[in-house]
Amino acid sequence: MEVKVKYELEFPINSSPQLLYQYISTPSGLSEWFADNVNSRGEYFTFIWDDSEEKARVASKKTGEKIKFRWIDINNEDTDYFFELRILEDEITKDVSLMIIDYAPESELDEAALLWENQISDLKHVIGSV
């Protein structure tokens, strides 16, 4: 199996950090742009796309700033991989952007970045930040 590498992407988003946080940290918010459906039970989230289902645990979060999901394997154990959604706000311009920290096999980095671009495009559409 190919080793996954960590990468970061940053997307400017015309939104308040508070509103944006609702879309990155709640099952209802995430299901509007990230996955077809998202369920949660406590700190455990289930992400559903078409016929596939992935489970993750909220590893850390800071209200209004960031949330980090650690992927869980079929034995319900944490894996080494996570994705983090971090809201950045420029202190002077008040410009808001969303930093994505994720992992992908090195041979699929371009594909992974493209997938995030499409998802962020959906997110912007949902919050009216087009």
Rank of each mutant, 00 (worst) to 15 (best):
S107A: 03
M1H: 10
E2H: 09
E84V: 00
E65T: 13
D122Y: 09
L20D: 09
T26Q: 10
K6E: 12
I101N: 04
N37C: 12
V96A: 05
A59N: 09
S60N: 13
K66H: 11
E111P: 01
G64S: 02
I74W: 09
I127K: 02
V5L: 13
E2V: 03
T93D: 03
T26D: 06
M1P: 12
K4D: 01
E8L: 09
Y7V: 07
K62Y: 02
A35M: 06
S25Y: 08
R41F: 15
T63R: 14
A113L: 10
T26M: 04
L19G: 09
I48R: 06
Y103L: 01
Q18E: 14
S16Y: 02
S121V: 06
N39V: 15
I92D: 15
S28C: 08
N14A: 12
Q119N: 14
G128L: 02
N37R: 15
W116H: 00
D73Y: 00
E111G: 08
W49Y: 02
I13V: 06
R86F: 12
W116G: 07
Q22R: 15
S121K: 06
Y21R: 05
D73G: 03
K4Y: 05
V5T: 08
F34S: 00
K66N: 11
W71H: 01
K6S: 12
L123Y: 03
S107V: 00
A35F: 05
N14H: 12
L9G: 04
Q22G: 06
L19R: 10
D50L: 08
V5W: 00
V58C: 01
T79G: 00
L88F: 02
E32L: 12
F11Y: 09
I48G: 03
K124I: 04
N75M: 14
L85E: 09
G42I: 03
T26S: 10
E65H: 03
A59Y: 13
D73R: 03
L9V: 03
L114T: 15
D122P: 10
E108G: 01
E111H: 14
I120S: 00
I24F: 03
F34W: 11
F45T: 01
Y81R: 01
D36F: 08
L114K: 15
Y44L: 15
D50N: 10
K61S: 12
K6M: 14
S31M: 10
F47I: 03
N76Y: 01
T93C: 05
Y23W: 00
I67K: 09
A59P: 07
L20V: 07
D78R: 04
H125E: 15
S129T: 05
D50Y: 07
D110V: 05
Q119M: 10
T26V: 11
T63C: 09
L9T: 02
E10Y: 09
E108K: 07
K6T: 08
A59V: 08
D102M: 06
E10I: 12
D36T: 10
L30S: 02
Q18D: 11
N118Y: 12
I101G: 06
D122Q: 13
L88E: 05
S107P: 03
K62R: 13
A104P: 04
F45S: 02
A104Y: 07
S52N: 10
F69D: 04
T93Y: 06
D51F: 12
D102K: 00
I72M: 14
N118V: 13
I74Y: 13
G128Y: 02
G29R: 06
E8P: 07
S97H: 05
V58M: 07
I67D: 07
